[in-house]
Design a binder for these strands. Structure first.
Lengths: 361, 361
DNA sequence: CGGTACAACATGTACATACAACATAAATTA
DNA sequence: TAATTTATGTTGTATGTACATGTTGTACCG
């Protein structure tokens, strides 16, 4: 997955396009001269010319020999009503995201809107690409699942461009702290809390937790995990809390689990997993360790995905709105688009614990 | 006599345009290389490039790195560049379809195209809705997975509209018999054949097959199923072939399997399942019948989905290109869009048998 | 015979230079 | 003062070089 081959003139072009979006330059303005930009970007004048040439071809700029280069007025559209909504998720193919997409698509189709889809693979650079691509043509509104929401927002300028252009948008699952638009999410802290309360009520004391810490969902689920302990006046054994990132998810949590499970004493009797995907992997690890679920080790997942019931031992997990979230996001967004909403408010879904056969005692 | 103000690149451009008009070159032709023209016109390669660049922008030429410059088909371009590709699948959220979408999205994003997504839920009415919606605004091309491809095509008029408007399209998985566009699919008959051959080689004789018959994939997989029997000179026991439709898939195959497995004598020793999804469900049925996989009953699935390895008993299954199919569909479509393909041809993927622990003896 | 490696050639990117054409404002001149 | 010239800065044209990247056919090798 290496695509570092972005030509300079393309970078220049995108940078300049960003100026249009965020209002650095306005229609009618005189652009800096080719030579000045060349020096500012550290490229040759020819390279700037190539970028300008494409932008002129696309109608963003108009050049007048001897005078300078000007920003074109936003082509007063063909008057056509745009009925297209963008959806940017972190992943498309994995896990619960297809259900979110599905819910959104169904709701949009029933309203006569088209769905533009893109994904970021949890990479902020790709998030930028996706936003720029969507902004390149007319758009009614946007639904975005933030990328690595716990780590800041380098694409803030593009979100401001959205607001500048009056395109409403909604966040899914988490909100960037820098922004204040509406957001639909689950009460992840409560979910973590419910999971641990359930296990404590079953008599478990050594409960290990595995959380992905580069998005707010993991952070909040861990927060709930700790809160449940506090409620009981218990202290958490630090080495039973495993934190990892997206990049590490293929190995670190599995290896750590294997190490924890092979302990002679102090072996955890229950695992709280960041999501069902990890839970299923850890159940496999448990089997390989010669232990069984739920007799030796109880397991709790998150999201109530299809994986939860595909395995032989059905997984105890917490619900996630999934397709309902996609659907309601669209409904809220369409009301914002149609201007029928004064102050859009997000929604906090309350997760429910589904007790199946992976927890006991 | 100061009319010498015609730039060289403009003269070159006009000269080349004359070739289009007087038939010196025809659409699809390969233009002489930049270097050759530069020499012929007595100008530098850069000057030729500038002329070519404008002609490309106006739609006369298309350039392919490494191959050459080609004369475009005369399309009544509104000049406006549309870079949006539609993708219509039967389902979005389930099974292998997210992977196809993912492959397509990644390929499109890297080429600067946007992806319009819709789904039909395997319903021809919704397929019509989706097509109409996509046709409602400018579109570069379309990738479609046919709905119930074994049952005819009531939306033929819309496909003809696509051709009339010069919008290229590609079929996935199956092709409507009425149409003859390019199609990417797997060799499902071979897949069915491989599955049965494998089981016969293991000594199984009573092999039951479960096939969804309202799309061509199921029909072809059954065809391969029967062919493998013929090769061995064996006859198929008719009641071991279970056919069902999308609407029946929730109950009929499961109930029939339960009935077959509870037979005193004549119980099948192996099941060939339309796909992994059904295979996992049938493995559950087998467990409920007090039997085990693969000791009592062997199971073969199709598509090598994530379900195949999520279960305790890993599933023997046949590969499906999945995301590669989405990616290659996009690559083919973009070449068609850019007019760089004279006669687009589909592709037939060869499935491979992945032997895991669900087959034995 | 089939696969690999490589050479040849196509377009793509980047930089450099030089001068021409044009617009504008300041300086000069009638 | 008004017209003209000049200086300066802009984009436009033209050419050069160099290397990167993608495609294709051929020669080679197993």
């Amino acid at each position: 997955m290496k695509e570092k081959a972005v030509p300079k003139y393309m970078q220049v072009k995108q940078e300049i396009q960003a100026w249009f979006h965020n209002g650095t330059v306005k229609p009618g303005d005189l652009m800096p001269s080719e030579n000045e930009l060349a020096e500012r970007f550290g490229v040759s004048r020819q390279t700037v010319r190539q970028a300008f040439g494409e932008l002129e071809g696309e109608g963003w700029l108009s050049r007048i020999q001897g005078k300078g280069t000007f920003v074109s007025a936003p082509q007063a559209g063909h008057g056509e009503i745009v009925r297209t909504v963008g959806l940017i998720t972190t992943y498309i193919s994995d896990y619960i995201f297809p259900h979110i997409v599905r819910g959104a698509e169904a709701a949009l189709r029933s309203k006569g809107y088209r769905l533009l889809l893109s994904s970021t693979d949890n990479d902020k650079g790709r998030e930028r690409e996706a936003l720029e691509m969507m902004l390149g043509q007319p758009l009614s509104g946007l639904i975005i699942e933030p990328t690595k929401s716990a780590e800041g927002n380098p694409n803030l300028d593009l979100y401001l461009a959205l607001e500048y252009r009056g395109i409403p948008y909604i966040m899914l699952n988490e909100q960037y702290p820098e922004l204040d638009g509406p957001c639909l999410k689950t009460d992840d802290a409560l979910g973590g809390c419910l999971a641990v309360r359930h296990l404590l009520a079953l008599g478990h004391e050594k409960i290990a937790g595995f959380f992905k810490m580069d998005d707010m969902q993991g952070v909040n689920r861990l927060k709930g995990f700790r809160q449940a302990y506090r409620e009981k006046g218990l202290a958490i054994q630090p080495d039973l809390v495993v934190q990892y990132t997206t990049e590490e998810k293929g190995a670190k949590p599995l290896e750590t689990a294997l190490a924890l499970l092979s302990r002679e004493n102090g072996r955890p009797t229950a695992l709280v997993c960041y999501n069902d995907e990890l839970a299923v992997q850890l159940m496999e690890i448990i089997r390989q360790s010669g232990l069984s679920v739920p007799e030796d080790v109880a397991v709790v997942g998150f999201d109530d995905s299809s994986l939860a019931t595909a395995t032989e031992t059905k997984l105890t997990t917490l619900t996630h709105p999934k397709s309902v979230m996609g659907q309601e996001a669209v409904e809220l967004l369409l009301r914002m688009i149609e201007g029928k909403l004064s102050k859009p408010k997000g929604k906090l879904y309350t997760p429910e614990l589904i007790v199946r056969s992976s927890t006991k005692r």
